[in-house]
């Protein structure tokens, strides 16, 4: 049977309806999660999902705020393995400098005794 225009439209409508329902469900879950007292997440699976939705929503708002401020998003910063590696090396160099400074003082002490 050939695919009719009406079928495509119906599929898209159903698709949109699913999204709408999921969106409303998510929003309701977030609202419930926000009113959940801390510690209540463990009470039942429903409370856990609501609490989790609220946590994710908080994270979303934080990312949104960072984007508005023009800052790099948190995940960009975290995921930057290169930047972390550079920081790591920079720290090791500074640490080495600290060691050298301490060793230099020890050398001074030995020299003073000679």
């Amino acid at each position: 049977m050939p695919l009719r225009n009406a079928d495509v439209m119906k599929f898209l409508a159903v698709w949109e309806m699913v999204h709408e329902m999921a969106d409303e469900g998510m929003k309701a879950s977030i609202e419930r999660g926000k009113t959940t007292e801390k510690g209540e997440m463990a009470s039942d699976p429903g409370a856990f999902v609501d609490g989790l939705a609220a946590i994710i929503d908080e994270k979303k708002d934080a990312i949104k705020a960072e984007l508005i401020e023009g800052k790099d998003a948190e995940f960009d910063k975290d995921d930057s393995a290169t930047a972390r590696a550079v920081d790591e090396v920079r720290f090791e160099v500074a640490e080495l400098r600290g060691k050298l400074e301490s060793m230099s003082a020890t050398l001074d002490a030995i020299q003073a005794k000679l």
């Binding site: 920081d87 400098r97 600290g98 060691k99 400074e101 301490s102 230099s104 003082a105 020890t106 002490a109």
Partner: peptide, 18 residues
């Protein structure tokens, strides 16, 4: 280093030894 609420006492290495 990224946590604004955590700090330590900075070490002064030229005046430190065993």
């Amino acid at each position: 280093i990224d946590d604004p609420y955590v700090t330590t006492a900075t070490i002064v290495w030229p005046q430190s030894s065993k």
